[in-house]
Design a protein around this nucleic acid. Structure first.
Lengths: 244, 244
DNA sequence: CGGTAGATTGAGAGTCCTCAAGCTCTGTGG
DNA sequence: CCACAGAGCTTGAGGACTCTCAATCTACCG
C-alpha cells in the first residue's frame, strides 16, 4: 500500500512530468491532504448527483468521468490519469453533475474541502495551478467533442488511442513501445458515442491496417505517423503540468 | 457605444445574475481591464492557433468557440453569452487550441494579461472565481458532449434550445416569453455534429409538434416541459455566477 | 468444468448524410 | 421601382455509416 507516502516523497512528482513547487507549497499540500482513498476496479469514486463534493487528485490507476441519460445510455466525458484533479466541479458547485468510475483499482489523495479557500488565500500560485488544471481538462474535452461531433469511427478511435498513448507516456508509463491500456471496447464505445459492435469492427480494421495493437492490457502504436494523419491530429509536445 | 462604461456602472452586474464583489475587487477589475474591444458580426475574436493569448469577458452580444479539422468540418464547442470569460485557455497555455467567432456584433472587455498574476496574488476571491468560471464552462461542454454522443437529432436540438433559453433568460434577455436567438441552422448543425439538411428537417418537425418557434431571431418555447422530457434534461435552477 | 465478462462476426434496419434543386427574404443598384 | 444576387432555409431522393439483434467464440476464474 502506498497509502502513507508523504507528498514530499510523492513518486508522481519525481517523474519530471510536473512543475516543481516550493517547500512551503509542498508543506501546504501535505496539510491540505486529508487521507488516501482506495477505490476498487469498476467502483464509483463519485456518483452522479452526489451532494457533498470532495476534491481528489488521482494518484494511481485509471478512471473516467461520465454522465448517464435515463434510458441508460452513458457518455464518458474524459479519461483520468495519475495527476488529474477529480471532483473540482463538485467542489465549486453543489451536487455532482457527473459520476467518476474507477477502471482499475485506484488510489486518490483526498483533500480537505474546508481548506480549499486557504489554498487560494495563502498560496496564489496553487490557486493559479488549480485554474490551470481546470483549463487543461477543458482542452481534453474540447478535443473529445471534436471527435464525437466531426470524426467518423476510425478517425475518432485513432484520436483516442493517440491521446491515451501520449498522456500515459508522459507519465513514464511506457515500456517497450507500449503503454497500459485498461479500457474495454465498451469504454471506447461510450467515450465516442459508438455502439460496441461498430467499435469492435473498427478496432479490428485498424489492427489489420497495422495501426494499433492491444494485447493483455497494453497498447502499442506501430505506425504513429499514419495514425495522426488518420485522426487529423497535430498537437504540440506536452508541457509540464501543475500537480496538487 | 458602451465603450466607456466603468466597471462600477457595469449594466451586466446590475442584472442580479452575478455575485456581488467588494469595492476593492471592483477597483482591481477596473484596473485589470485594458480596453473595450468591438468585433463585427461573423468576424473572429480569436483565431485558431493564435499565439498571444488575450483574456476577455464577453460584455455584449453572442459568440462561440470552435475547432476545425483540415477537411473543413467545424465543431462548435460551446456558445458564449455576456459574462462569459473568453480566452482563458490561451492565457494559460501558449497557442490557442480553438477559435472564437462573433455571431452578432460583440463587445468585449480585454484584460491586461500581465496583471493576471496580480489577480491571484492580491485578490484570492477573484482567483477562486476564475477557477469557478472555468469549471462552469467545463460543465456546459460536458453537457454538449453528452448530447452529441448519446442523444439523437431531435433530443440534442431540444437540449440546445432549452439551454440557450435558460442562459439567455437568466441574463434578463427575455421578452414576451422569448429570448434572442441569433444562430443560423448551420450553427446548430456545427454544434451538434449534424448536417445542415438534417438539422433543418428536425427543426421543422419540432416546430410542427409545437415545441419551438424561431422567428426573426427570437426563440420561444411553447411547451418547455415536453421539451425537457424529450431532451431528458433536468437541471437545478441556475445560480449566481462570478463576473470578472 | 461450468460461468461470466469481453470480443467477434453476420444480417437487416434506421438514422443521418450527400447531392441537388428550389424557395424566401433582404439588400443593392441600375 | 424592380430585377438581381446572396444568405439562409426547405424538400426530395438515394446512399452510407452506424445501430440493433443475435449467435458464437475466447479467456479467465472460482
Amino acid at each position: 500500500m502506498a497509502v502513507d507516502i508523504k507528498c514530499a516523497q510523492c513518486p508522481l512528482r519525481k517523474t519530471k512530468a510536473f512543475s516543481p513547487v516550493s517547500a512551503e507549497e509542498l508543506e501546504f499540500i501535505q496539510s491540505f491532504k486529508k487521507k488516501t482513498v482506495r477505490v476498487a476496479e469498476g467502483e464509483l469514486v463519485i456518483s452522479e448527483g452526489a451532494s457533498a463534493g470532495t476534491l481528489f487528485t488521482l494518484f494511481e490507476g485509471f478512471a473516467f468521468r461520465f454522465k448517464t441519460l435515463s434510458n441508460g445510455r452513458r457518455q464518458i466525458l474524459n479519461f483520468l490519469m495519475p495527476g488529474d484533479l477529480v471532483g473540482l466541479q463538485e467542489s465549486l458547485s453543489s451536487g455532482s453533475p457527473h459520476g467518476v468510475e474507477a477502471v482499475t483499482e485506484v488510489l486518490l489523495c483526498a483533500f480537505n474541502h474546508d481548506k480549499l479557500w486557504d489554498l487560494y488565500r495563502a498560496h496564489p500560485n496553487l490557486g493559479y495551478d488549480m485554474t490551470w488544471l481546470a483549463a487543461q481538462e477543458h482542452g481534453l474535452i474540447d478535443e473529445n467533442l471534436l471527435s464525437v461531433g466531426q470524426r467518423n469511427a476510425s478517425e475518432s478511435i485513432a484520436m483516442l488511442l493517440i491521446q491515451h498513448y501520449r498522456r500515459a507516456e508522459r507519465l513514464g508509463l511506457g515500456r517497450d513501445n507500449s503503454v497500459p491500456f485498461p479500457y474495454t471496447q465498451q469504454h471506447i464505445a461510450d467515450a465516442l458515442g459508438l455502439s460496441l459492435v461498430h467499435t469492435s469492427k473498427t478496432l479490428s480494421r485498424l489492427k489489420k491496417m497495422g495501426l494499433q495493437m492491444i494485447k493483455q492490457g497494453q497498447l502499442s502504436l506501430p505506425n504513429p505517423y499514419a495514425l495522426t494523419k488518420l485522426a487529423d491530429y497535430y498537437d504540440l509536445p506536452m508541457k509540464v503540468t501543475p500537480l496538487i
